[in-house]
Design a binder for these strands. Structure first.
Ligand SMILES: [Mg+2]
Length: 323
DNA sequence: CCTTGTTTAAAATTAA
DNA sequence: TTAATTTTAAACAAGG
């Protein structure tokens, strides 16, 4: 049976093309949806003063819009759309946040902040997605809660990545992992593998070893060729390389205090000098990219960066031609 | 009260 | 289409 005419689908990543990631500000990234026909995607005027205080249903676009100036806009160019939802799952975003931190340990509020700083989209409906973030942290085994340092009077705990949860997004897909990484540990707590090798201690004290590995010069462990090492390998989805390179570890090559010589040598865009700035991982084409029959599509979406990443990633068998 | 976490349950989306 | 993953909602406990 065909799918039901569920026309009310609130837009998914599937239906949108990554136009280009522009930063509205030093560190902000804004994803614009491809708006072809169907101007349906309405914008919500303010919060409707209805009876229920329910937040608006989610669309791919930031629903706020309006607000500022209802001036005469070009009726043809609906550029009024806000930021679209970034093509990253919450797990991805959380991982970004952790990896981006110098200590690899972040608090919940820091995660919030990181996401909001980076993606204006998440400056809205905070209650909604922050709840999801919390859920992700608790639910997924790849995130481990580390008790606060004895001397730190903070609020919550720190969150880290499970040591064994290597590159969870090696397939290049940041929306959905292939598998969910579950800790082998069944009964116990956070399954800290009986390794004793460079494992953080009870309070997440980093081992010396760990620090060292963060300074691997260009070419990750797997040593892809033309790939720097920061940000996920465009060619990442390659053969089963035992790459331990975290996808979001932009600092894989650069130590925070190192102030090295090259720092942003590899990044076409600016490179983060400060925690506020961060280079978000590239996105990939969803369906392996449709034949792009429409001439409109192959427009300018082939940005330098984007282009690279569209390479492989998730492709579909393309067999079966029938439904 | 609010923030942080955990958990259950269901809806939505993704990738195959 | 399906199965697995992700998202969303909501109830609840602990702590500040
Ligand atoms: Mg967890």
């Amino acid at each position: 049976m065909m799918d039901l005419p569920n026309n009310t689908t609130p837009l998914s990543h599937h239906d949108m093309v990554v136009h280009n990631a522009r930063h509205t500000a030093p560190g902000e990234y804004d994803i614009k949806p491809l708006v072809t026909a169907q101007p349906t995607i309405g914008e919500y005027t303010h919060q409707m003063g209805g009876g229920t205080n329910q937040p608006p249903p989610q669309t791919n676009l930031g629903d706020n819009v309006s607000e500022g100036s209802p001036k005469a806009n070009s009726p043809m160019k609906p550029r009024s759309y806000q930021h679209a939802k970034p093509p990253y799952s919450y797990i991805s975003l959380i991982t970004m946040s952790i990896q981006n931190s110098t200590t690899k340990m972040v608090t919940l509020s820091e995660i919030y902040q990181f996401i909001m700083d980076l993606f204006p989209y998440y400056r809205q409906n905070q209650q909604r997605w922050q709840n999801s973030i919390r859920h992700s942290l608790s639910f997924n085994d790849c995130f481990i809660k580390v008790p606060r340092s004895p001397d730190k009077p903070g609020k919550g705990s720190f969150w880290t990545l499970h040591p064994d949860a290597g590159n969870m997004f090696e397939n290049g897909c940041y929306l959905r992992r292939q598998k969910r990484f579950k800790s082998d540990r069944k009964g116990g707590l956070n399954s800290i593998p009986h390794n004793g090798r460079g494992q953080p201690d009870m309070y997440g004290h980093p081992s010396y070893k760990q620090m060292q590995m963060n300074t691997s010069p260009r070419g990750g462990p797997g040593g892809p060729v033309g790939v720097p090492a920061f940000l996920p390998n465009p060619y990442g989805a390659y053969r089963g390389l035992h790459s331990f390179n975290h996808p979001f570890a932009i600092k894989n090559i650069i130590a925070p205090e190192h102030e090295g010589d090259f720092r942003y040598a590899a990044d076409p865009m600016h490179f983060p000098y400060h925690p506020s700035t961060f280079t978000p991982p590239p996105m990939y084409g969803k369906d392996g990219m449709p034949p792009s029959t429409s001439a409109e599509n192959n427009f300018n979406l082939s940005t330098s960066l984007m282009n690279q990443y569209y390479q492989n990633s998730c492709m579909i068998p393309n067999n079966t031609g029938l439904a």
